[in-house]
Every structure is written in structure tokens, then in C-alpha cells.
């Protein structure tokens, strides 16, 4: 897994990171947000299907309403007018649906090019690809450019959006592989729980001493 990670990292350094860097320099904030909104709007059918499969009809309806508003008033989805009206974007995918159906995630895997995953999310990716009307249309109409263009744009959008965070993490973590692994798991859990924080989750305590006095005293108390 670490070998695949090293391979992906090399690819990132050679292709994706420089591309994202240029993209950030050339396209202003507003333009990149517009592209991000457009790509989010294209995900509507997949989000809709998965919200229905999860029994979340409220979110399915909201996703549908978002699509109608953003495709028209939001000019083909470049502007997220729906979010301004209080209907915020929330992604759903088949990996999350399987989690809602209580399928365990399985072991962490590092896929070549695609990055961090697990068996549940890998199955999810395949199913989402198959049910996506955009892919079906591209396949039937011989529009060979559509799928790779969209995939490339998604990758560029993600990499540019998290450019500083990734640079910081890579710089400050001791074991970048382990850091990416835990961040992937935590992010996925957050997405599965739709952003609700589990209040029972373990957190550090203040410790015996409240002030920041000598660590030695703290240590003798901890013994």
C-alpha cells in the first residue's frame, strides 16, 4: 500500500500538483468557485439516486430542487443560487449508501491513480459510474471526450481546493501515509453521518493541571 502511495505521490508531483498550481494562478477565486459549482451540479443524478436509496427523501427532493434552480437561475450550474436560498450542497454516493445499509468498510486500500479507498467505497465508485446518466449518454453518443474531461476537471478542482491543506499536511506530518489514511476514514465517516459530530467520541482531557506549568509535575501526577 505504501508503494502505491509513493507511486501516486510521484504522479501528483509530476502532473496534478503543477496543474493545480497553474490553475490557481491563472483562474481567479470566483472562476474556480463557478467551475466547482458546475461540477457539483453535474453530480445531481448520482446524489439523487443515493439519497433515495438511503431513504432520505427530504435530501433527494432538495437535490432535485437545487438542480432546477441552479441549472436555470444559476446559469447551467455555474452559480450555486440554491445555496444562497438555504438549500446547501451535500454529496451522497453509493459508498455512503452501502454504509447506511450497514455494510462494513473493510480494510483500507490505496488504489493506483484513484487514491485512498476501501472495498465498500471501491464498489460504490463502480456503481456510481454505472448509474450516472452523463456516463450513459457519453457511452451511447460516442462522446469519448466527456468522461475523461469531467474526471480530469474533478481531480483538478479537488486538488486546487485543498492545495494549501495538502501542502501543510505533507510538510508537518511525521508519517504522511498514516495521516492521509486517518483523514480519509474521518472524512468518509463525516460524510456518512452527514456532518453530525458524535458527542460520545473520546476527546483529550485537560489533565490534572490546568496551567501550563512544568511538564515534569504533570508526569509525576500521571504516574
Amino acid at each position: 500500500m505504501r508503494a502505491v502511495f509513493a507511486f501516486n505521490n510521484t504522479l501528483d508531483k509530476v502532473i496534478l500538483e503543477p496543474a493545480a498550481s497553474i490553475y490557481r494562478d491563472v483562474v481567479p477565486d470566483k472562476g474556480r468557485v463557478a467551475v466547482h459549482n458546475f461540477l457539483n451540479n453535474l453530480r445531481t443524478p448520482v446524489i439523487f439516486f443515493n439519497a433515495v436509496l438511503q431513504g432520505d427523501f427530504e435530501h433527494a427532493l432538495q437535490t432535485l430542487a437545487r438542480f432546477l434552480v441552479n441549472t436555470t437561475a444559476g446559469i447551467l450550474g455555474f452559480n450555486d443560487t440554491a445555496a444562497e436560498l438555504g438549500m446547501e450542497y451535500r454529496d451522497e454516493d453509493f459508498g455512503q449508501t452501502l454504509a447506511v445499509w450497514n455494510m462494513p468498510e473493510g480494510p483500507y486500500i490505496m488504489l493506483p491513480i484513484l487514491g485512498p479507498s476501501n472495498p465498500r467505497d471501491a464498489i460504490g465508485r463502480v456503481v456510481d459510474f454505472i448509474i450516472d446518466p452523463l456516463n450513459i449518454w457519453a457511452g451511447n453518443a460516442d462522446n469519448d471526450w466527456a468522461v475523461p474531461t469531467r474526471t480530469g476537471a474533478d481531480a483538478l478542482d479537488f486538488r486546487a481546493l485543498h492545495f494549501d491543506t495538502i501542502a501543510d499536511l505533507e510538510k508537518s506530518s511525521l508519517d504522511f501515509y498514516a495521516t492521509v489514511r486517518t483523514l480519509y476514514r474521518q472524512r468518509r465517516n463525516d460524510e456518512i453521518n452527514n456532518g453530525t459530530v458524535d458527542p460520545t467520541i473520546s476527546v483529550p482531557s485537560i489533565g490534572e493541571r490546568m496551567d501550563d506549568g512544568p511538564a515534569l509535575e504533570e508526569i509525576s501526577q500521571a504516574n
Binding site: T179, T182, L183, Q186, D190, E191, V197, V203
Partner: peptide, 10 residues
């Protein structure tokens, strides 16, 4: 959704 403390722990 990503905890600073949990991430450092890993």
C-alpha cells in the same frame, strides 16, 4: 469532520 487530535494520534 477531521479531528486534529485523532489525526495526530494516528
Amino acid at each position: 469532520g477531521t479531528s486534529m487530535s485523532s489525526t495526530l494520534r494516528s
